[in-house]
Simulated assay, not measured.
Amino acid sequence: MRNWLFTLFLLATSGIVSAQSGKDKEEIFAILDRQVSDWNKGDIKSFMNGYWESDSLMFVGKSGITYGYKSTYEGYLKRYPDRATMGKLKFTYLNFSFPGPGVAFVVGKFHLTRPEKGDLEGHYTLLFKKISGKWVVVCDHTSG
Rank of each mutant, 00 (worst) to 15 (best):
K130P: 05
S63D: 15
F110E: 02
T125R: 07
K78E: 04
G118P: 03
L126E: 04
G118A: 01
K88A: 08
I16F: 09
W52C: 05
F59E: 02
K88V: 11
K130V: 10
R34L: 02
G108Q: 07
G64A: 09
W135K: 07
Y124T: 03
G87E: 03
T72Q: 00
M86S: 02
N40I: 03
D140L: 01
D55F: 03
G61L: 02
S132R: 14
R79I: 06
V138A: 05
Y67H: 13
I16G: 02
K130F: 07
K62E: 13
L5C: 09
F9E: 02
S143V: 10
S143Q: 11
F96G: 09
K78I: 03
L126I: 04
P101L: 14
G22H: 10
G68D: 02
K129C: 07
G87L: 02
G100N: 13
F29G: 00
F47M: 00
K62H: 11
Y93H: 14
N3Q: 14
D119A: 04
I31W: 00
Y93N: 10
S63F: 11
W135P: 03
V60P: 03
E53T: 12
I131N: 10
K88G: 02
S54W: 05
W135I: 05
D24C: 06
K117P: 00
G64R: 06
D82W: 01
M48H: 06
K25H: 11
G108S: 10
F110Y: 15
T142A: 12
L94T: 14
V107E: 14
L89P: 03
D55R: 08
Q20Y: 13
E116I: 02
T72L: 00
T142Y: 04
V17C: 04
R34A: 13
S63R: 14
G102Y: 09
C139T: 13
I65K: 13
T7W: 14
G50C: 04
G22F: 08
I131T: 11
D38A: 14
K78D: 04
D33A: 12
V138Y: 06
W52M: 01
S143C: 12
F6G: 03
L11E: 07
F9G: 04
L57F: 10
Q35M: 06
N95C: 11
V138T: 15
V36G: 03
L8H: 05
K90Y: 09
L77S: 05
R83F: 10
N95H: 15
Y76W: 11
A19S: 08
K130I: 10
N3T: 12
T66K: 10
E121R: 04
I65N: 08
C139G: 05
M1H: 12
M58I: 15
F6A: 13
K45Q: 15
D119I: 01
P115M: 01
S143N: 14
K134L: 05
R114Y: 00
S37D: 08
K117G: 00
F59M: 08
R114D: 00
G133W: 06
E26G: 10
K134H: 09
L5I: 13
G133D: 07
K41D: 08
K41M: 07
E53L: 10
G118F: 00
D33S: 12
E53H: 15
Q20S: 11
M1E: 11
G100D: 14
S37G: 00
S71L: 08
G122K: 08
